[in-house]
């Protein structure tokens, strides 16, 4: 009983902490939106290359494996039911609808979120952020805005790549290991993909990109205490953004599956 109450207590504290952080992030988002029209395309491009182009290999690899995992783990059940050809359908639906946006976001919370948090936290403890502020140079405009736009755009592109690679992973398993003919597999795959799932996935990717950058920037700005503080900011940025991404994903699942489509 003591253990349970302790667990509930720490869960409650975590929830309160997350709610407070979300409030602060909301303010940051508002201030960022206020600077939107003063955006510099070249600085956005730099961030898109840093966090987008360079993330393609890792995002592709992870999602290829995820597609393969789904195909392998579903195959036994589908074979028992006598519908092994449905492997492609299961993979296509789960990848496009949930797994590609989610896995991409989680990879990016490490790839981009940790990097942004460490970068901004270092600037905070080195008085660089203070130097920007007292020099009338808005850190929100110069640092947050290009990172947010860059990450959100690239998150959508990466999610598209992830969807393709996830289905490719399923196809490899299906044709090589499960002996499903390639034309059969592709036909069932294309039949199963709901094309509306793709824009829905992109909406999610955009939202996850916002979460990753807002969390990372917020943790970076509030860092204090030298190198130790930078480490703490990086860790909490990754932990908080994964929690919020999963929670946001649940909200999207309810919205897209029940509210928009009807129960």
């Amino acid at each position: 009983m003591v253990f349970v109450s302790q667990l509930l207590g720490s869960l409650g504290r975590l929830a309160m902490f997350l709610i407070e952080e979300v409030g602060e992030m909301g303010l940051l988002a508002q201030r960022t939106a206020g600077q939107l029209f003063r955006m510099r395309p070249d600085s956005v491009a730099v961030q898109m290359i840093r966090f987008g182009i360079r993330a393609i290999p890792i995002v592709a690899l992870v999602n290829l494996f995820v597609g393969m995992i789904v195909a392998v783990s579903m195959s036994e059940m589908l074979r028992t039911l006598g519908v092994i050809n449905w492997t492609s359908r299961v993979v296509a639906v789960s990848v496009t609808r949930e797994l590609a946006p989610l896995m991409t976001a989680i990879v990016m919370s490490g790839f981009a979120g940790a990097a942004i948090a460490a970068e901004i936290a270092t600037m905070t403890v080195n008085e660089e952020i203070l130097a920007l502020q007292v020099g009338a140079l808005s850190p929100v405009r110069l640092l947050v805005l290009p990172r947010m736009i860059g990450v959100c755009m690239m998150m959508m592109c990466l999610t598209l790549i992830a969807m393709v690679l996830g289905m490719l992973g399923g196809w490899i398993v299906g044709t090589v290991l499960l002996d499903i003919g390639s034309p059969t597999y592709i036909e069932a795959n294309n039949d199963a993909v709901k094309w509306l799932d793709i824009p829905k996935g992109l909406v999610k990717a955009f939202a996850f990109g916002m979460i990753v950058t807002l969390v990372a920037c917020r943790q970076g700005f509030k860092a204090e205490g030298g190198a130790l503080g930078v480490g703490r900011a990086t860790t909490s940025a990754v932990v908080i953004s994964i929690c919020l991404i999963i929670f946001a994903n649940l909200c999207f699942a309810i919205l897209f599956n029940w509210t928009l489509a009807g129960p």
């Binding site: 970068e119 270092t122 600037m123 080195n126 008085e127 660089e128 203070l130 130097a131 920007l132 007292v134 020099g135 009338a136 140079l137």
Partner: peptide
């Protein structure tokens, strides 16, 4: 008001992603 004064911070507080020249050019 902030554009009317300059500040030298204890550590210099140079922007670490920019060269010395770019630091001076930024303002």
């Amino acid at each position: 008001v902030r554009k009317r004064f300059g500040t030298l911070f204890q550590s210099g507080a140079l922007f670490s992603s920019m060269t010395v020249g770019e630091n001076v050019a930024l303002p």
